[in-house]
Design a protein around this nucleic acid. Structure first.
Lengths: 244, 244
DNA sequence: TCCACCATATTGTATATACATAATAGGTTT
DNA sequence: AAACCTATTATGTATATACAATATGGTGGA
């Protein structure tokens, strides 16, 4: 044998990775209908059983939806977890029975400052800076400060975030992202306290989330909630580390 | 057809559920060596391929470990997520380079109060109440208040939590639990502030976690961290809802 | 025309079979 | 006795085959 390859990838692992990449990179968008099992098997040069194993696994991972006779299509991305679910603050506000409104305070397309560079972990970038307030029945609910990477969010520069909050737009535009949360309790500074209509120094819950797709930063956001009015809920069950 | 059964369980789904139950309920403890594939297949009355599918799936879910020739054994439970990982506060403290110590303040075996009943969602129970302080280099790090369900944690009444914190003990004793977190920023009350050596009204991060195994409550814990000194980190990636 | 029924397409599950791979156990040689 | 080789055991992967389940679309009859 002249096979030097040090890593052995099984056929179906290879195919799983290939299809997952197409979905994550958006080449196969949510709703896209895949070729039928037998055709895919032929294209990849494997048997239907092998292809079935691949598609079954990707379905279990949540990337695909399959129905008999109806074929296989790329799934809509789901809320990623209980903590992630709060990303759509409109839903959260409306679920508690209040009217939701987003007020944009600032918008700036600029070169990344040193502080921005730290946040996004990338240099020499142009960033879109957004700042606004989520309101519940005319009471401040959450203060949002956000950086967006325009090339990774096509169309973001044309969006009017005076109407729709950037978080909600991004959530539905950039599927399959991974996010890192940092959650802290901090005393709210005077300017923030004024916006949130609380006393300076009161307890606030700060959630900082940086979001990536395939290793590239997409957005960085800081959400500041007034103290005890807000809580995060998260459920966890044991699960294996993804073999991918 | 006289088949009335409304839900159809496939053979391998049925077997997966059966084995998972045995593991979660502790009948097959971590490290337990399962019969070999062919024997299991015979016991369940299916082909080896079907049995292999079952064991492969459970391995992906993290319940089993398999090595060629060495057989199949029940896996050790893992840290359940980034947020879950902080459960072992000792690790967290030591990771930041400080000496860890746990000081038990109170221990009480009592009938559940009305407040306890709300917390654990079960009535007419006897509960073990524990309260203590996690220390980092003789500075208060986290205040812990805990309820434990003794029947679900065999041996808990004999443990001396003056030495080892109950969280760490439970984490290694009750594998495969599911947990629900509630995270809030609150002003710290006077008695708590005194214990944590901060000023009353300062911001604190309160994490309340209730833990279950198979629908039965195991423990409820409230962790109070002094304000900005502490942060939670959580990573999230898209994933499917567990079909189980 | 409309409805019942059937043919068809596509995924879902199960089996038998075959060969590959990894690690142990035991025997043979030096 | 130590080193090496080989047989054996158990899992890992791939294929061909078969039949079941489900939704669609078309066909024929009242």
């Amino acid at each position: 044998m002249t096979d030097i390859s040090p890593k052995i990838a099984t056929r179906h692992d290879h195919i799983i990775g290939d299809i997952r990449t197409r979905i994550i990179e958006g080449q196969w968008a949510p709703g896209f209908q895949l070729p039928i099992e037998t055709d895919l098997a032929a294209q990849y040069g494997v048997s239907r059983m092998t292809m079935n194993k691949v598609l079954t696994q990707l379905t279990r991972e949540g990337f695909l939806l399959r129905r008999k006779k109806m074929g296989t299509r790329v799934a809509q991305p789901r809320a990623q977890s209980a903590v992630m679910a709060i990303a759509d603050i409109r839903d959260e506000v409306e679920a508690s029975g209040h009217a939701y409104r987003f007020v944009l305070h600032a918008r700036d397309l600029r070169a990344a400052t040193d502080e921005d560079t730290l946040r996004i972990g990338a240099e020499d970038q142009q960033v879109l800076w957004l700042e606004g307030l989520h309101m519940a029945d005319d009471a401040p609910f959450c203060l949002e400060s956000r950086l967006v990477n325009p090339p990774m969010a096509p169309g973001v520069l044309e969006q009017d975030f005076g109407i729709r909050a950037p978080g909600a737009w991004l959530l539905h535009t950039i599927p399959w992202s991974t996010a890192r949360h940092r959650i802290r309790a901090i005393p709210v500074t005077a300017p923030d306290a004024k916006l949130l209509r609380i006393a300076p120094g009161d307890a606030g819950l700060e959630v900082v989330r940086s979001t990536q797709v395939g290793g590239t930063w997409v957005t960085w956001v800081r959400l500041l909630y007034p103290g005890a009015d807000h809580q995060l809920i998260a459920e966890f069950a044991p699960r294996a580390v993804d073999p991918a």
